[in-house]
Design a protein around this nucleic acid. Structure first.
Lengths: 227, 227
DNA sequence: CTGCCCCGTTAAGGCGCCGTGAAGATCCTT
DNA sequence: AAGGATCTTCACGGCGCCTTAACGGGGCAG
């Protein structure tokens, strides 16, 4: 299900929007401050973010920049300001769209659809098969070669998913930590050692000699399916 | 260069916009009817299309649908109509953005930038191939001519990456040390000798007679891909 | 011819990084 | 409130990478 993160301090408006979104089959997270928004963005992995610029505390643009430091998730900015400079600033700070209040709910939803259509293109096979196991990224299920299901915890899935989506490519420790745990965890390399060990124990035929989840010392990790 | 196709029948407006775009380094094609626009879209391979809905003849929405039948090129729709239904229709017909006239030129340009940023992350392969080896800088993989993988350590990758990104150009020892080891190491020329030797041993067919990683005595090093 | 500078080569030492097991903390369900 | 599953934190041992040093060769100038 598509998950929308809504960052807005106007509770009444946010609630109305959340209801509209849920009625149309979206999953909705909400945050009422910039800090909370950044936190939830890292934690909840939304598919799109709706960000109101008129937040108390942190400036909305700083929230946007904080997001863009580590993620390319699509962002629609809402604002009561009509001034053109603020539009340009927001768009150049990394926003994908900018909607001025007041606006029609239907328009916002249409812009959401347009953005999701663009940003989530040809979702090719979220399915990976090797000689020793099968992964279905969409269904979040894993199975050994003989078909017996393998259970992975959420963190383990996070690690596996990032690596598999970058099959063959090296994923730096920093990027892996940012994608799975969030931007403020980029130094916790301990986690990676522990979770790579867990993933290997569950998926590799010989976890002491990994075939699929390869360590590149000092750089990061790599998933390779064949060979 | 980024090419913009501008489909608009208001000649004065189109001309002004074209001038603004060209001044900012875009390549601009123009069309004044829907038919011409479809023709040019097929013929000119634009990177983004700006489409005015208020065209004579063919309805603007039909132009949009005609485009979406065969291409996913980003489209920004312009319109004088303020009605919300038309926005929703256009966005659902495949438009990526919808701007209502009158609007500021800066806003349109900012929306153009945002859209291009999202739609064209088509990072062309950062891949280098020679007769004796291939390098994939993004994936951080190296392979010999016969396909057998070659393992490079982080420092070795650092050296190779700086030299390859400056293909053909001389890179001074100081710059190489600063880029790979950091500014405080700019005098440690010992490192370069050791690591160039390692890189050559792993990549050059005859490491005693380098073809690719050339020493310029007293100055620095150079990577050349052919000959 | 000879001394110097610069570069290539090799090897050894030490340290940082990684894998592993386990225990405490935290979250979630019953 | 209790129990299990999951996440975080820590310490230890081993291996690979980085650093450092020593030696030899080639080019150049005196």
């Amino acid at each position: 299900m598509t998950k929308v993160l809504l960052i807005d301090d106007e509770v009444r408006f946010a609630r109305a929007l959340a209801i509209s979104l849920r009625a149309r089959g979206y999953d909705v997270d909400t945050a009422t401050t910039g800090e909370e928004g950044l936190e939830q963005a890292a934690h909840g992995h939304p598919d799109v973010i709706v960000l109101d610029l008129g937040l108390p505390g942190i400036d909305g643009l700083d929230v946007l920049r904080g997001l863009r430091g580590w993620t390319t998730v699509p962002v629609i900015v809402l604002s009561a300001r009509h001034g053109e400079p603020s539009k340009v600033d927001a768009l150049d700070a990394g926003a994908d769209d900018y909607v001025t209040k007041p606006f029609g709910m239907d328009e916002l939803l249409a812009r959401l659809r347009a953005l999701l259509r663009r940003a989530a293109p040809a979702d090719d096979e979220p399915r990976v098969t090797t000689d020793d196991f099968t992964l279905d990224l969409a269904a979040k299920t894993a199975a050994a070669a003989d078909g017996t299901p393998v259970h992975l915890t959420p963190r383990e899935w996070g690690v596996v998913e990032v690596l598999v989506r970058n099959e063959g490519k090296l994923v730096s420790q920093k990027q892996l930590l940012q994608d799975v745990w969030g931007p403020q965890y980029e130094r916790e390399t301990d986690y990676l050692r522990v979770y790579l060990a867990a993933v290997r124990r569950k998926l590799e035929p010989d976890s002491s000699r990994p075939k699929y989840f390869i360590t590149e010392p000092g750089m990061g990790y790599r998933f390779q399916s064949g060979r």
